[in-house]
Design a protein around this nucleic acid. Structure first.
Length: 298
DNA sequence: GCGAGATAACAATTTACATCA
DNA sequence: AATGATGTAAATTGTTATCTC
């Protein structure tokens, strides 16, 4: 909440209360289901069941352990540990499930040993009664420094990550997570702003549409008047260049008598006569030149 | 050129905690 | 004071794109 104010994330739009799967991510399911099970994935599946064979109690104890590490504690691990993927409370799990973090330096047997060791420790920890997993809450100073750094550059390189972590007494991974979440918040905020903008556009277009409909009605009523026909010049024949699709208008009528209509006005009438396909490529200042002008023969 | 592994960024989700009625 | 609902930030998990070998 406090953070909310700090970031100016106070736009309140009526979004669905619970996030659902992104409808645009159509292929996510396909891709996930089409992935062939890697040997490591098979390992991770078997790992838990092998470690805790048919014992829900053991499994539960191990889970409890994984929740039992105080992340508010000043990190004592080295950066090397961090890079090896055993830094965060859940990184053992992450290491097992992640397809990239775990397998780097530690082989399966070592991981199993680590897990077993930690699990056995967890049981004693639990008996000590200090099992609740604490979630780190960054101090105002820490947030301010991170915010400042984010403003300068919203991504991290490994060097910067380490430096920030060292400066703030955080693990590089925590710095990384903060930046990640911060980017997500920025994106969400931008989405809200965009949504608001589109809403306004929609309102304006609705209003414009209403106005044009009214104008159409008025023009239809006017059409019934014979005087209107007297002022109309014959329909203009437009010629389109087949190669560049530019429109070439015929030479303006030399008629400039008292009853004649300004050709520009005629053009306006033409443009009001229904939806004309708009060709962006053809939308250029040379719209009304004859074809011969468009492609002068040299 | 192709495949495997490493890496970073990201989306979606979970979880712990704070606040309020 | 206790409690449940709710919002938010921290953290996790899985996917994708890109790069290098």
């Amino acid at each position: 909440m406090m953070e909310n104010q700090d970031l100016g994330l106070s736009l309140s739009l009526s979004f669905p209360e619970k996030r659902t799967a992104n409808p645009l991510q159509i292929n996510s399911l396909d891709s996930s289901t089409s992935i062939s099970p890697s040997p490591f994935n098979l390992f991770q599946k078997n790992c838990w069941t092998d470690l805790f064979p048919s014992s829900d109690q053991n499994l539960e104890k191990c889970r409890t352990f994984l929740k039992g590490i105080d992340v508010n504690r000043v990190p004592t691990i080295t950066d090397d540990d961090e890079e090896a993927g055993i830094s965060s409370p859940n990184s053992i799990i992450s290491g097992l499930s992640g397809n990239k973090r775990s397998e780097r330096e530690i082989n399966c047997c070592e991981e199993l040993e680590i897990i077993e060791r930690e699990c056995s420790r967890s049981i004693t920890d639990e008996e000590d009664g200090e099992t609740s997993r604490k979630k780190l809450r960054l101090t105002k100073d820490q947030s301010a420094v991170l915010e400042e750094s984010f403003k300068k550059h919203n991504t991290l390189n490994p060097k910067k990550k380490k430096a920030l972590g060292k400066r703030l007494g955080l693990r590089p991974r925590q710095v990384e997570v903060w930046f990640q979440n911060r980017r997500a918040r920025t994106k969400l905020k931008q989405t809200e702003v965009d949504c608001e903008f589109l809403k306004r556009c929609c309102e304006n277009l609705t209003e414009e549409n209403r106005r044009l409909q009214k104008e159409v009605q008025e023009l239809k009523a006017l059409k019934l008047s014979p005087k209107f026909y007297m002022q109309m010049i014959p329909p203009t024949t437009l010629t389109m260049c087949p190669s560049c699709e530019r429109i070439a208008s015929p030479p303006y009528s030399s008629a400039s008598g008292p009853g004649s209509v300004d050709p520009r006005a005629n053009q306006m009438i033409l443009t009001r006569q229904g939806p004309v396909p708009f060709n962006l490529r053809a939308a250029s200042p040379v719209l009304h030149r004859p074809i011969s002008d468009l492609h002068p023969r040299s």
